[in-house]
Structure formats: structure tokens, C-alpha cells
């Protein structure tokens, strides 16, 4: 059976986004089944507007040049690559309600679900990660 990777994305910065989507796309490209549960600030990473302009951590702004020099793909590019590779994206319903966000505020092709949805996906995962 294929390797299964379950990821929780709970933070909304640029570095967090790279950690989540690099691991997710690498895993999916290695034939793993991958699901990411986006909750609290993590919802930024799939928010239609917000994921185009994620903040760098305070004091780390100078790394922007490094990202450019290393020719690292942009977050929107990584997100669509992840979706193309079949990564399942689950947005947390409860956080959406708290933050007054609707499904149409997010990128296309996501699922919305609660904690139980993620647990059901993660129950037989070989690798579980939280960022």
C-alpha cells in the first residue's frame, strides 16, 4: 500500500507555507497519498488573496532575496502543483466560522470539514506532521 502522509497546517507565515507545501509536493511526487488540514492561521495558506502575499517572520525579511536567488517556486505555484499531484486540501470549518470565512474565499478544489474529517484521513497515515 502507498505511503500516507497527514499534515496539519496551523500557522500562516511564508516560512510555514514552504514547510507545508514542499513536504506535501515531495511526498505526493513520491507516490504518497497526502492530505493537509488547514486550521487557524494556517487558513492563510489557501486563502485566495492572502496566499499571494504571506508575511515573512519579523527580522527575516532579508531572506526574500535568498528565495529569489535559489529560484524557489512561489507559494501559489506550489499550491497548484500540490493539487495537480492529488494532494487533498481540507479547510477547518470551525475556524472558518470563527473568522467569518466562506468556502469561496479560498482557492478552488478544496474540501471543508471538521476535526473528525482529518482524523478519519489520518487514522492510518504512516507519517503525521504538524506545522
Amino acid at each position: 500500500m502507498a505511503t500516507k502522509v497527514a499534515i496539519i497546517a496551523a500557522n500562516g507565515g511564508m516560512f510555514d507555507a514552504y514547510k507545508v507545501f514542499n513536504i506535501a509536493t515531495a511526498a505526493a511526487a513520491s507516490d504518497a497519498e497526502v492530505g493537509i488540514f488547514f486550521t487557524f492561521e494556517g487558513l492563510n495558506l489557501i486563502h485566495k488573496q492572502a496566499h499571494h502575499q504571506l508575511p515573512m517572520p519579523a527580522g527575516a525579511e532579508h531572506f526574500a532575496e535568498g528565495f529569489q536567488k535559489a529560484n524557489v517556486p512561489s507559494i501559489p505555484e506550489l499550491v497548484s502543483m500540490a493539487q495537480e499531484l492529488g494532494v487533498k486540501i481540507i479547510a477547518c470549518q470551525m475556524t472558518m466560522d470563527v473568522m467569518n470565512l466562506k468556502e469561496e474565499d479560498f482557492i478552488d478544489g478544496i474540501e471543508v470539514g471538521g476535526a473528525a474529517t482529518f482524523i478519519d484521513f489520518a487514522k492510518d497515515a504512516n507519517i503525521s506532521l504538524s506545522f
Partner: peptide, 11 residues
Amino acid sequence: LACPMPIVRTK
């Protein structure tokens, strides 16, 4: 191209 692009392209 940086990681994970070489692997993604290969896949």
C-alpha cells in the same frame, strides 16, 4: 530549480 521541483518534474 530548487527542491522539490526536480523531483516533481521527474515524477
